[in-house]
């Protein structure tokens, strides 16, 4: 069957200095084309710049949402980010596409740091990897019960914390 709609999103994280990352998040959808670019400092993970463009949208007035991006400056990538992004950028005075692009850009920063850790774990044997996951949860308690793998009663963590 022929597709009637497609949507592709790509978020890329590029280090631009020892203490700074640039994230580009782009959406290409049958009805929307837009991109958001943020810069985030390391190690405090503060958004120091945010800009973007709606290149194509079903309703021309949607382009006004570009100006919302300034509200993302000063955000810190960390706990509570979802609610903050929603309150600043989504809702009846905002744009869910812009809010989601910003949130995903911030999430990509966290994932890029996780990818570094996971790359180091590739060299470990299974037991060492399991010990590593336990250590991750101990260092970041927010991971506990955040998914099926980090279920406190699951095979990976039960009786070990």
């Amino acid at each position: 069957m022929v597709l009637c709609h497609t949507r592709t999103k790509t978020a890329s994280v590029l280090p631009i200095a020892d203490d700074k990352l640039r994230v580009l998040n782009r959406i290409e959808d049958t009805f929307f084309s837009a991109c958001v670019e943020i810069e985030v400092t390391l190690p405090d993970l503060e958004v120091i710049s945010a800009k973007g463009k709606f290149e194509r949208c079903f309703t021309d007035e949607c382009k006004a949402a570009e100006s919302l991006l300034q509200k993302a400056v000063g955000l810190r990538v960390g706990s509570g980010l979802t609610k903050l992004v929603d309150s600043l950028l989504a809702g009846a005075q905002g744009c869910p596409i812009v809010a989601t692009l910003v949130f995903e850009a911030c999430d990509a920063v966290i994932l890029s740091l996780t990818a570094e850790q996971m790359a180091m774990a590739d060299a470990l044997d299974e037991q060492q990897r399991q010990d590593g996951f336990l250590q991750m949860v101990q260092m970041n308690p927010r991971l506990l019960n955040s998914c099926i793998a980090f279920d406190e009663n699951g095979p990976l963590l039960k009786g070990k914390l």
């Binding site: 497609t6 592709t8 890329s12």
Partner: peptide, 8 residues
């Protein structure tokens, strides 16, 4: 690039 995520 340090990281890329694509959703389609």
């Amino acid at each position: 690039l340090k990281f890329t995520r694509t959703k389609h």
